[in-house]
């Protein structure tokens, strides 16, 4: 299949556990990129640290596997120095919103043209199952043996408030929607965020008695609903899927071109 043209086959099978949702995100992303017909040389993928971040090494783009939480800061440097490149930044929930929270809101504020993918499995998988800022209350984790009392972020609301101009959410169950949203996010000019609810059967599912990968994906099916659906008004606990924000605001690199113009006018 053509999507295999975008991967580094020699590193497969990948390191993720059986049933890990991150592989499905990878799968959807490949299809989104394939549908765009971009040159692989135009795509730079920047990731941080964690299970999610290993996605970059599997892809045949320019790949930058950086340090925990800082992927967006590295990506900002790549993008501003070469604005013609397409930047995709996959991150885990802890990576993007705990240690990387500051970079997340500031990349959104600048509206720099990066595509941020938050692979939200509500747990730190690579380190063995500690709770994350997206775990929410009542979750069992290795650092919450009596269940969490921490509230979680709503990634979409946070991204909207910080100034992201494209914000969407889907799940690993809803792969067709996910592919479509990733495609739109990459095409969007400005800071775009796609939150993907993804399963960690090994640490989140098992410890929280949610079953295996299949049961967790069924949970995504049963507990989510399209944005603005009637079901949401009847059952506010449902998690909305779809596009939350799609708007236009000056993109950072384009805006900086005006700084260059003004500076050069002032000089001569």
């Amino acid at each position: 299949m053509a999507v295999k043209d975008f991967i580094r086959e020699r590193f497969f099978p990948h390191i993720w556990c059986p049933g890990c949702g991150h592989g499905i995100v990878l799968n959807s992303l490949l299809r989104a990129v394939e549908s765009l017909g971009m040159s692989k040389n135009e795509i730079v993928m920047v990731s941080g640290i964690g299970c999610s971040s290993r996605i970059s090494g599997y892809l045949d783009f320019h790949t930058l596997h950086t340090i925990h939480g800082r992927a967006l800061a590295f990506a900002t440097g790549v993008k501003l120095s070469r604005p013609e490149l397409n930047l995709i930044v996959p991150m885990g929930d802890g990576d993007a919103l705990a240690i990387g929270g500051n970079h997340f809101i500031h990349a959104a504020r600048r509206n720099i043209d990066l595509t941020a993918i938050v692979m939200n499995n509500r747990i730190y998988g690579m380190t063995g199952g500690q709770f994350s800022p997206l775990s929410g209350c009542g979750v069992m984790a290795t650092t919450a043996p009596f269940a969490t009392v921490d509230q979680s972020f709503d990634v979409a609301e946070l991204a909207r408030a910080a100034g992201a101009t494209f914000v969407a959410r889907s799940t690993t169950y809803h792969v067709q929607q996910l592919t479509k949203l990733l495609r739109e996010a990459i095409l969007h000019e400005g800071f775009s965020v796609v939150e993907v609810l993804t399963q960690c059967p090994t640490y989140f599912g098992r410890r929280n008695k949610m079953g295996g990968a299949v049961e967790m994906m069924k949970w995504f099916k049963d507990n989510t609903t399209p944005v603005g659906s009637k079901a949401k008004t009847e059952n506010p606990a449902l998690i909305e899927r779809g596009i939350f924000v799609q708007t236009e605001r000056p993109e950072y690199c384009k805006a900086y071109d005006q700084v260059i113009e003004r500076a050069q006018k002032g000089k001569k």
């Binding site: 320019h62 950086t66 800061a73 590295f74 900002t76 440097g77 120095s81």
Partner: peptide, 11 residues
């Protein structure tokens, strides 16, 4: 972030 950004730009 400043340190990270310059590394990205160097690449």
């Amino acid at each position: 972030a400043s340190m990270c950004a310059i590394i990205g730009a160097s690449l």
